[in-house]
Design a binder for these strands. Sequence first.
DNA 1: AAAAAAG
Length: 617
Amino acid sequence: MIMTTSWADSVAASEKEVGAARFSSDQASQPRPARPTYVPPHLRSRPQSSGSPPAPPSAGAAVASAGNERGGYGGPTAGSRPTGGFRPDAGRGGGYASAGGWSGRTGGRDRGRDREVNPFVDKDGFEQAVVEQDNAVINFDAYEDIPVEATGDKVPPPASTFAEIDLGEALSLNIQRCKYVKPTPIQRHAIPIVLAGRDLMACAQTGSGKTAAFCFPIISGIMRGQYVQRPRGRTAYPLALILSPTRELSIQIHEEARKFSYQTGVKTVVAYGGAPITQQLRELERGVDILVATPGRLVDLLERARVSLQMIKYLALDEADRMLDMGFEPQIRKIVEQMGMPPRGLRQTMLFSATFPKEIQRLASDFLSNYIYLTVGRVGSSTDLILQRVELVRESDKRSYLMDLLHAQRENGVHGKQALTLVFVETKRGADSLENWLYTNGFPATSIHGDRSQQERELALRSFKSGRTPILVATDVAARGLDIPHVAHVINFDLPNDIDDYVHRIGRTGRAGNTGLATAFFNENNSSLARPLAELMQEANQEVPTWLPRFASRSHGGGRNRRSGGSRFGGRDFRREGSFNRGTDYYGGGYNSTGHGISAGYGAYGAYGAGVTSAWE
DNA sequence: AAAAAAG
């Protein structure tokens, strides 16, 4: 498909395509006419009519704040109130200013809300999001064509706009501030399902707007809910729990959730290991509605009785397949089944992942009650924007090969700065030694893995994001969910054994509407990956080296995961396979939509703000 | 087999 002869050429080609996608008003001039360039909606800055503001998501919200002007959310205005309703007992100890003050209904004591930091501006008071100057012309059809399948009992119909979902004014305002105009496919389907009170297992590609898909209905539900007063004391009683497999991902989810819940009276707290627990305890004491956490630290807090799960109404597992794999499953089971959380049916449970193997689905069904299975196809997924290459590289040649790539990359760097390159290795030791080697050879590299201190991890991530060290050597700790803008190149120095891990890894590039490059070093040690990798690349219209499939025969029964469900979907509801639960009307209410049947699609506007990448993850 | 997640 892509006919480039050298790696440097393909970088150059990628750069050209990015330029074309952003600046050209002529789709036909794209170098890849056969496949329209897909641009995620949040990146479609002001298409068509230049200068016109994005369509307001709802009439009501438009009245409250004209357009997306800065004045609308420069900060809490004196006397302003949350517009989306109030709750009498935000956080712990309802009615007390320390926790509930910012609900705006505590006898005029607004201390709490005044303290709420505006998450939409940085510490210097500037808007975080950089306003994209250029107008992009995007092919919306690719987006409309994303196949969506929902199965289960009486599936609630999808919504095509945020306005018709009615999430409440305060939340709508935040959605506007985030510059989301239209819900993404996963959001269109998932939000009505959750608002209808149903459990959900959602299989959606990386970068499909998952975080917002579970945050919006949770925040909305908490705002509307009339919950019995939570006990006072040192124990925090969150109403929602969001679990994720890595600390950095929890941090990221929390940052997103803070934006969505700004001035709604819904308090979000994050808790994770490796960091001092005292500050987290202090935050929890001030009241928490939504707790974002990694499993280990949460168990710690539960055993100290500083957190109780008795009031949980919403449970969300991000990267759920990872959370339920061999390493994590016992811990998750303990949290969900043995720590006082209301049983399924009495809470709402949402599982999200880009990949959902059948074994994991079977495990996961223990936590769910009459759930809906939702799968969003990978057509138009971010993998579409990624140019994938596989090189045959002997183990002993990897370092010099890497050096060649990095040299080429340096020459192709934009604005004199080296483009960000993420190098995945298999082991923590391997990460250390490769970082060291790169560093001694004059490459600005750092590394992130589980044996580094949390401080070092976060520093490395910041340093990488800022471009100070544009090369990051990482283990799988960085493979999932992390939203790092401007990663131009993902190098699988060591390939993973599982094709799903490969999918997650390369998903770190090709984000935010930029094309990305993914290079893998393949040798006989990776034979088990040959078949699934070849299939995946073929599916993504990538050029498959002729030698690659030949390695497949050398693998013995490996290559698990012939990607089920064919090419259109990331997965399939395991309840539809075999005889499991035949007879119950599990999928009687299911439907299948390619998006064509949904009116008010994406044709008119697609003006998601630029630089607002993470909610699309 | 490795990585992640508590200290």
